[in-house]
Structures are given as structure tokens and as C-alpha cells.
Design a protein around this nucleic acid. Sequence first.
DNA 1: TTGCTCGACCCTAACGATCGTTAGGGTACC
DNA 2: GGTACCCTAACGATCGTTAGGGTCGAGCAA
Lengths: 190, 190
Amino acid sequence: MTRRNELTRQAARLFAQKGYHGTSIGDLAEAMGVQKGSLYAHISSKQDLLYETMAEGARAFHGGLDAIPDEAPVTEKIRLALRSHLQVVADQLDVATVFVQEWRYLEGDRREEIVGERRRYEERIRALFREGRDLGELRSDLDDATAALLVLSAVNWAYTWLQPGRATDELADRFWAVLVDGVRGYATPE
Amino acid sequence: MTRRNELTRQAARLFAQKGYHGTSIGDLAEAMGVQKGSLYAHISSKQDLLYETMAEGARAFHGGLDAIPDEAPVTEKIRLALRSHLQVVADQLDVATVFVQEWRYLEGDRREEIVGERRRYEERIRALFREGRDLGELRSDLDDATAALLVLSAVNWAYTWLQPGRATDELADRFWAVLVDGVRGYATPE
DNA sequence: TTGCTCGACCCTAACGATCGTTAGGGTACC
DNA sequence: GGTACCCTAACGATCGTTAGGGTCGAGCAA
């Protein structure tokens, strides 16, 4: 683990804990056991650290979806997507936290870039529900945009309550069970 | 509208837009068309403004739930709770935004107070699902804690996408429809 | 009507602290 | 002789906050 990587990790941790603007270069230096001026041997600005954390988050979330097999049934793909997302949050809680709530402090082109990654990710999730309805694997009268929004919102909030120690996959499956069959437990015949 | 109230409103707006630490007293003064020192005729610290916004948020969210009739069926109560929550977010988007994502910058006792209000609110939602399962209005094998977590997470994220102009109640009902009957549309017989 | 007070509101000017960043020099290991 | 790493010391800017003084209209007494 190079010194540079350690700095990125500490930055993710502190940004997650106290926010980007709430974390000073001095805080970061203290966490590294170093004078604050010394950090500039590794970075050229505080923004660098934010951007790097965001880029790592984007990579992790997209990478998770990439592993989902194309030929699986849609409900299964949704289940795997839920697992993947929560797994990323659990494995890299700090990075995920920053990715979700500190992106607005990015400046310039990097901001547009990360916003684009976020949008692309959401679009991939939305596509699952659209596809599922079109293929007849989900109910024909499904409001797929709303369903996708429900799921995306839920997992985007996961960083606030997810405990990395706990069985994350099982939790994802429980989410999935509620989502797929609803809370009432019998379908309304049309 | 007193000058003091106008300041609180501007604070909510700026805190929502740029974050608590990202908003300076100078920014607030500029929004009020005043020199920054002048603000201290109205407040005694920047924290005051944050606390006040949070308190207003807590009041609004709890007030919404209070209007739900006790004797209604549980599924109906859940529908009304969804409507109420989204309505508060739509009506007071700035306040809701700050309430949801800036609470961690509160300091001292006020922080504990607001955290308590948040927890109490979530408990009221959880109770709906527990009660619904116990009364047999929801499926008997329902994981009520997970269902509540799903809903709470989804609505807590609403401030990021909700557009106050759009038909909020209808949107809440669409959420409810997905939640109640699921995306698959037929129950798995056990 | 005039004169006076009071409260609401704002000003300028500065305080000490902290911010992110830079310059220039030093040590130690490959 | 690099290369990786860290130091001290300071820069100008901005932070939240305070002190002290000023303006203006409403309310009331003469």
C-alpha cells in the first residue's frame, strides 16, 4: 500500500464522516501523521482527493453490474443487481457514502463526468425493469419507471443503515422478496 | 413575513443548495442584501439557522403523519403515509433536503434532539407494517422490518428527484401500487 | 404639532482563527 | 544521483463573530 493510496483511503473515510467541506487539509494531515503542507507532495489540490474517491465509487458500482449474466431471467437479474449494489456499499462504505452524497462538491468537468456515470448507472437499473415488462416476465401493467425509482432510491439510501459485518446478500434478497411479490401477498386480478 | 423568517428561509435554501459548511455567513448576507455583520442582530450563531431548519422539518414530517386516521385499514394508512411524506418534501423541498442530509452538522444537545425526532418518525412508519402483519392485512410471512426499511429509504431519497410542480399524490400512489402488489404481479404460493 | 424614546434594522471595521496552497530545504533508502 | 517522503514557515484569503455607532418610523407625552 503506497502512501498515496493510504491518503485516498483516509480522505474517503473523513469525507464520509464529516463531509468534504467539513474536512480540512489539516484533518487529513493529522490522519496521515504528517504536516499539512506535506500532503502536496502527493496531490495538487483537495479536489483531487474528492474526484478520486468519486471515480473509485463509479468504477465499483458499474463493475458490480457488469458481472450479471445477460441471459438470466429478469427477476434474477434484479436480485443480482440488488446484491451487487449492497455488496459495494458494504465493502467500500466510505467510498459509497462519498459517492452518493458529496458529488455536488465536485467542480468543473470532473463534476459532469461523475454526474454522467451516476446517470448511466441509474439507466442500467431502469432498463432491467423496462425489459422485464416488455418480455412479459413482470406484470404487464407495471409502472416500470416508478419501480426502478423505488429500488434506486432505496439502495441509494443504504449507506445510512447498512452494517458491513452483517449478511449483506441475505438482506438484498429480503429486499428483493418484498419488491417482487409486494407486502399484501396476493395479486389484484385485472 | 418578518425579516427574521426571511433569513430562515434563505438559510434553508442555501443549505439545501450548497450544504451547511459550503454556505458562508457572507453568502447568507448577500442573499439578504445586507452586510454579514448585520445578520447577528437576528441570530446568535450560524448553528441557530441550521437547528431551526431542522426543527421545522421534524415538525412538518410528524404533522403529516398525525393527520392519518387511526381506524383506516393498514394498506390505506401506508398509502396516506407515502402521500404525506412526499407532500412535505414537495411543499418544503429546501427544508426537507436539509432535514435529510445536513443533520450531522448539528452540534451538542440539539443534535441529539433532532436525531431522536428522526428515529421516532421512522418508528412510526415501521409500526404500520408490523401492525399490518399482526392484524393479517399484510401477508403473514412478511418481513415487516425490511418492508419498512425499503419504504423509508425510498422516501428519504425523494428530495433528489421530486419535482414540486408535478402531481405528487399520484406519484405516491404509484409507489404504493408497486409496494403493495410487487413487480411480478402474482403471488408465489407456498 | 412638536419632542422624545424605543425597537427594529443596518452599517463599517476589525478581531483571531483557520482555510487551501506554496516555497525551499532536508533526510534516507534504492 | 535519483526518488520518495517529510519538514518549517509563511502566503493571502476567507471564516464566524463582535463592537460600536447610525438611521428611521411608530408610539406616546407635552
